[in-house]
Amino acid sequence: MSRVGKMPVAVPQGVDVTITAEQISVKGSLGTLVRPANALVSVKNDAGKLTFTPVNESADADALSGTMRALVANMVSGVSKGFERKLNLVGVGYRAQAQGQKLNLQIGFSHPVVKDMPAGIKVECPTQTEILIKGADRQVVGQIAAEVRAIRPPEPYKGKGIRYSDEKVSLKETKKK
């Protein structure tokens, strides 16, 4: 059995988990997340601990038990604490501004770039060169951060562009004559 799948998921106070044959629903203070259940994995709620066991001895069921455990653990963590991703803008004149559910970027193009945020995602700009993307669904937060970064990824010669706060950009040396 998968090592990750063997570990139970602790459900904190204020989080409600509903398990049916078709889906797993997790409800907390930051929202509700729903994921379809897999027929190869059996999920049980034993007094605030979720356990995941493969239905049969196949390699697919074993692998999926660990995957389902990790996905549901992220759901439980997301509805209780939430997830956030921080981006930094590097470049002269590069600015970001959050306007409700829109992110307005001025990053060296001839026009401002406006990115709409999906439901459940909040965007904040503590300073003009920082972007904070917050939400309950880890996958969506990471995807939106990747889409914002892809608008102007860091270039390798000066390092200008949008980068994750923990990203290290190695700069190339310019061509010598």
Rank of each mutant, 00 (worst) to 15 (best):
R3G: 12
V4E: 10
G5C: 05
A10E: 02
V11S: 03
P12N: 13
D16G: 11
V17C: 00
V17M: 10
I19F: 01
A21Y: 09
Q23N: 10
Q23E: 15
I24D: 02
I24C: 06
S25L: 06
K27Q: 06
G31I: 03
V34A: 12
D46G: 01
A47C: 04
G48M: 04
G48T: 00
T53K: 09
P54S: 10
E57P: 07
S58E: 06
A59R: 15
D60F: 11
L64P: 07
S65L: 06
V76C: 00
G78D: 07
G78W: 00
V79Q: 04
S80W: 15
S80M: 08
R85S: 05
N88T: 13
G91Y: 10
G93M: 08
Y94A: 07
Y94Q: 01
R95F: 14
Q97D: 15
Q97Y: 12
A98L: 12
G100M: 14
H111I: 11
H111N: 14
P112Q: 13
V113H: 02
K115C: 15
D116P: 04
D116Q: 02
D116T: 12
D116H: 05
A119D: 09
G120E: 07
P126E: 11
T127S: 12
I131D: 07
I131P: 04
L132N: 11
I133W: 01
I133R: 01
K134M: 11
D137W: 06
V141C: 01
G142V: 05
G142L: 09
Q143P: 11
I144H: 06
A146N: 15
V148P: 11
V148G: 05
R149W: 12
R152W: 06
P153G: 12
P154I: 01
Y157I: 03
K160D: 13
G161W: 03
R163L: 14
Y164W: 05
D166R: 09
S170K: 15
L171P: 07
